[in-house]
Amino acid sequence: MTIMVTGAKGMIGSCLVKELLDTGYDVVGIDRNGDEVRGGNYCHYKVDLADKERLQNIVACNKVDRLIHLAALAHSQNGRKYSWEDYRHLNVECAVNVFEAAGERPVLFISTVDVFGFTKGSVSVDTEPRPISHYAKSKKLAEDECKKLAHYTIFRFSPVYTEKVKRDIQKRYYLRYPDLVYQIGKGTEYEVLNVKKAVKTMAKWCESSPKNDIQIIKDDKPMFTPDYIKAEKEAGRAKLVLRFPKWTVVVGYVILKGITGENKYTYLLNKAVHPLKTREKTEVKH
């Protein structure tokens, strides 16, 4: 089969392209970056996803069988702050262009567990999303558009990391990289996702029949912050560890949330006080 991957030059996309090629698929990569390459088992196109007509032509000309939509605006880069209009354009409007180009072809859309927003206790795919950030809100809107397709799967990824790129999980224990870290109580467990498992799961999807469902993708074992802090110290980083009793963080969270409400700042504290815990499906109570 021929698989199209958007965001092919990104951290996850580049690993996925390699995995698919090693598995034996023909791959069409789409990204705003990189030199265009045609021929062989891999073709790369430098494309703005706003260009709907070119997307449709690439899909048709390469006889694409399935699409994996990874490309997205996630967080601010190089200090630049993005507006809601930026997120809506890149994560929703451009996603719709990809979905329309797919037509009847199966689509795998990569979303995020951030769509759950404020949580207390465990959640499943049946839990009603309450997105807070622009990123999460735009991903939820794109999920809604994806559900209109004839054949789709939505993966909600936990924070993804590689052995070299750990910025998303370092936010859970670093105040200032690489010297200042923090630990709440005896430590906190967070659900994360190694990029190796992420790409294996996406490649496996190419072999299956889409069930028009949503799945949460995470590592089998959660990260435990004291273990990561210990490893950082052994590597010569994390020179100063600030330890906060959990009750002080909980009290601060309750007070701040009571004063300012649910917003992006209290959402960050919510992650520390009530780390996301997911389960496969909602338990039926009799």
Results as ranks from 00 to 15, higher is better:
246 K>Q: 12
10 G>M: 06
240 L>M: 15
52 K>E: 11
70 L>Y: 04
107 V>C: 02
1 M>W: 06
110 I>V: 15
81 K>T: 12
245 P>E: 06
236 G>T: 01
259 I>P: 07
55 L>W: 01
53 E>T: 12
274 H>W: 15
214 I>L: 02
43 C>W: 14
206 C>H: 08
223 M>N: 00
109 F>E: 09
159 P>W: 00
12 I>Y: 07
219 D>A: 02
70 L>I: 14
220 D>M: 13
95 A>I: 03
76 S>M: 02
15 C>A: 15
219 D>R: 04
92 V>Y: 01
116 F>S: 02
177 Y>T: 13
187 G>A: 01
265 Y>S: 13
187 G>Q: 04
273 V>C: 12
206 C>F: 07
41 N>C: 14
130 R>Y: 00
28 V>Y: 03
128 E>W: 06
263 N>I: 05
126 D>M: 10
114 D>H: 07
205 W>F: 08
155 F>N: 09
58 I>M: 02
236 G>M: 08
107 V>H: 09
9 K>F: 10
57 N>A: 15
109 F>K: 08
149 L>W: 00
268 L>T: 13
127 T>V: 05
116 F>I: 03
171 K>E: 12
179 D>W: 11
169 I>S: 00
94 C>T: 14
142 A>Y: 03
260 T>A: 10
43 C>Q: 15
31 D>E: 06
109 F>Y: 15
168 D>G: 09
233 K>V: 02
87 Y>I: 07
246 K>D: 07
146 C>D: 06
159 P>L: 04
50 A>T: 15
109 F>N: 11
16 L>R: 13
202 M>I: 07
